[in-house]
Amino acid sequence: MSETAHHDHDRQSIRLTSGDAVITAIPTLIGFTPADSLVIVTVAGRQVGLTLRVDLPPAGQQTRELAAQAAEVIDRHQPGADLAAVVVIVGTDTRPDLVGALTEQLAAVGVAVPQALHTPAIAAGMPWRCLCGCGHSGVLDDPATSVLALTTAVATGQVSYGSRAELAAALDSRIDPDTARRRGEQIAALHQSAARHQITAGRRGAPDDSGVADHRGGPDHSGGEETDAVVQGAILEFGARVLGGGLDQLDEEVIVGVGAALLTAAHRDALVGWTAENTEPGVMRAGWLWMVQQLTGEARAYAATLFALGALLEGDGAAANVALELAEQVHPGLSLTRLATDVAGCGIEPAVLRRMLCDAAR
């Protein structure tokens, strides 16, 4: 299991000047406090670039394979850059085999490892030391009160979770089974009504054998136009609440309408574009988090996928991966979820991803 995080230098400059500063920055850089993990923080000068976290592998062939994969990821994401990498081992063992393999593989792609660090856990009062023979060591301060954590919270609203499990729990449903069942039925009914309207409208406007459009069906009395108005109104109200606050004041009709919109390709594509176009930190993630907590079934899976895209647009691969795992669990096989999973695996830089999504939505 692995995550990548990209730091956006347009929003906040990060400079890490000591080993303990690097270690206490990790929860903020990746969004949660890792355990039994390898963390690689790339640095240009003293400015942070890509951060990569993976579970510690067992010794042997898997260690060598992981080191090669990590070097390939870093080289692919920042080719030609004058990079160094700080390697951090979080766990009971210092893992000299892993540090050695990484140093060798990173050197092969032109990335030096000036420092390797170890701590049993990233928490206040835990010991840390450098593994490079320099003798540097000490005791960690509380990561939550570091300058980086506090300035990041103020600048972007980003929350650092105590563990990956705690991050996953933030996406848990907030509705009871009866509400979930009722909303699922209402979303399905609204979506089916909209789909029938689209089919009927297509048939009325389709040409017959003479090439003349068939309007014999007359006006649409199926309620399809009313259905479209409900869905469009829900999207507008949701957008207003996302941008202006008050998500907890959304009523049942809006939640159901957004759920139905997520099941319709045209509306869903528009929502993807809207998510990419809004650049205010944390706003889109908060909106889709609310929908993940309030929706059910396929609509919830799409909301989780859009939350993941919002996270990737802010360089937060950890939150994106957790949300995509949830989406696949709730409703397996959605093409948008697969696409987002591929994007997360490639580690596309947020600015590049934003341009891609905005262009696709036009």
Rank of each mutant, 00 (worst) to 15 (best):
residue 226 E to Y: 08
residue 12 Q to G: 08
residue 183 R to H: 03
residue 190 L to K: 00
residue 310 G to E: 02
residue 248 D to A: 10
residue 267 H to E: 02
residue 36 D to Y: 09
residue 154 V to E: 12
residue 319 A to R: 02
residue 117 L to F: 05
residue 173 S to W: 04
residue 321 N to W: 07
residue 273 G to P: 03
residue 124 A to I: 08
residue 330 V to K: 08
residue 117 L to N: 10
residue 111 V to G: 03
residue 310 G to M: 00
residue 291 M to G: 01
residue 190 L to Y: 04
residue 249 Q to F: 03
residue 221 H to R: 15
residue 10 D to R: 15
residue 148 L to R: 15
residue 76 R to T: 13
residue 130 C to P: 03
residue 140 L to V: 11
residue 7 H to V: 14
residue 198 Q to P: 03
residue 64 R to Y: 05
residue 313 L to A: 06
residue 287 G to T: 01
residue 142 D to V: 01
residue 94 T to R: 15
residue 17 T to Q: 13
residue 126 M to W: 12
residue 15 R to C: 05
residue 204 R to E: 03
residue 57 P to Q: 08
residue 226 E to H: 13
residue 155 A to P: 07
residue 9 H to E: 05
residue 53 R to T: 14
residue 330 V to A: 13
residue 253 E to D: 11
residue 149 A to C: 05
residue 340 A to W: 08
residue 315 G to Q: 10
residue 194 A to D: 04
residue 70 A to R: 06
residue 120 P to I: 00
residue 304 A to Q: 05
residue 12 Q to W: 11
residue 255 I to A: 08
residue 13 S to T: 14
residue 338 R to N: 04
residue 24 T to Q: 15
residue 135 G to S: 00
residue 218 G to Y: 13
residue 139 V to I: 04
residue 204 R to H: 06
residue 133 G to M: 11
residue 227 T to L: 04
residue 304 A to T: 02
residue 235 I to F: 01
residue 214 D to Q: 12
residue 265 A to I: 00
residue 305 T to P: 02
residue 138 G to E: 09
residue 331 H to P: 05
residue 200 T to Y: 09
residue 31 G to K: 00
residue 88 V to P: 14
residue 347 G to I: 09
residue 212 V to Q: 14
residue 337 T to P: 09
residue 297 G to R: 12
residue 361 A to I: 06
residue 150 L to K: 08
residue 146 S to A: 10
residue 218 G to Q: 14
residue 132 C to H: 08
residue 10 D to Q: 15
residue 195 A to F: 06
residue 323 A to C: 07
residue 70 A to S: 15
residue 215 H to S: 06
residue 17 T to H: 15
residue 97 D to Q: 01
residue 335 S to P: 07
residue 312 L to F: 09
residue 178 D to A: 01
residue 64 R to I: 00
residue 353 L to S: 14
residue 111 V to Q: 02
residue 106 L to A: 10
residue 354 R to W: 02
residue 273 G to I: 08
residue 224 G to K: 13
residue 88 V to I: 05
residue 114 P to W: 06
residue 128 W to L: 10
residue 274 W to G: 12
residue 4 T to Y: 13
residue 272 V to E: 14
residue 7 H to D: 10
residue 128 W to Q: 13
residue 292 V to D: 04
residue 143 P to K: 06
residue 49 G to Q: 05
residue 352 V to Y: 12
residue 1 M to N: 02
residue 7 H to L: 09
residue 328 E to R: 09
residue 198 Q to S: 11
